[in-house]
Design a binder for these strands. Structure first.
Lengths: 155, 155
DNA sequence: AAATAACCTACTAAATTAGTATGTTATTTA
DNA sequence: TAAATAACATACTAATTTAGTAGGTTATTT
């Protein structure tokens, strides 16, 4: 089971995109600045997000990334799946060959857990995060701190 | 968030103990043999399980480990907590200082997820695993394969 | 033409996990 | 009482994964 900085960075960056969705393409440099994630690392993550049709890109000056769909049609589970291989908790990646080609004693437990986590994260859209009060508060603070504000009227 | 072989090994080993609970102390050598987990690695895990009062030990020949409580009073969550530091999914270990001393955009999301996972695993006792049909089937197969059967009448 | 920002690939560093090796100590059994 | 057993302890190595760096190329706008 993998749920590390990588998945968290991806969700954070996508949420940043969602929050600034009205402002046209958002450059990774902006996200890097606001969320304090290394630019090069973001580029690697966005390569995967793009391959999985979660974002569209615009090259050249003024370019950047936009959400490929509306924020209520993108779940947290999809984002994590895109950058992490999976959120599967079994040792056999669900194959069921964890003990000498058969399932191990605890295979079903981890399988159930994986499903549970996936269901939870699938039920949470970027849009629902955007409308959480805590997220709003954090975003306002971040915008205050970042002088390099694009001037786009925030929601 | 950590949920790796380590936690899985610990739960598997504890389940093995629960399944053989009637047979007196179970040696780590037996568990190592049945579950194909390195003996030395098991010793490290059981040191933690013992510190967390999940098992009692008996030294010397015929010794081994027993569950410290009845199997319906030991949850999977407790076992994982004992060997992994935690199953917390936040980057700040729940401290809430993930972004410049304040919470990050997605803090609450990971916090909720952690709680969700913990609730799920807390609700599953060793005893409930013992009585799952799949577990019974796997155990029977393992006992067939292992000639080094202690001769204890299995449940 | 210059600047910008996506796009691409290979590499390094850090952290963590998994596993090994080598003992010591307590307890039972012959 | 000696030998065998199995817990207990610690230090080390190997493997894997994550996180981050470096150094480019390509497309597009100004």
């Amino acid at each position: 089971m993998r749920l590390t900085t990588r998945g968290r960075y991806a969700v954070t960056a996508m949420l940043d995109l969602a929050l600034n969705n009205e402002c046209g393409p958002i450059s990774l440099a902006d996200i890097s600045h606001r969320q304090e994630i290394s630019l090069s690392y973001l580029e690697q993550l966005f390569a995967k997000l793009r391959q999985n049709n979660l974002v569209n890109s615009v090259r050249g000056p003024g370019g950047g990334y936009c959400l490929a769909r509306s924020s209520d049609a993108i779940s947290v589970a999809e984002i994590i799946d895109a950058v992490n291989e999976s959120i599967d908790a079994t040792s056999c990646s669900g194959k069921g060959n964890c003990h000498n080609g058969d399932i191990c004693l605890t295979h079903h437990l981890w399988d159930d857990l994986s499903r549970q986590i996936h269901r939870f994260l699938s039920g949470i859209s970027l849009d629902s995060l955007v409308h959480q009060q805590e997220v709003q508060v954090v975003m306002l603070r971040q915008n205050d701190q970042a002088d390099a504000n694009s001037g786009c009227a925030k929601v």
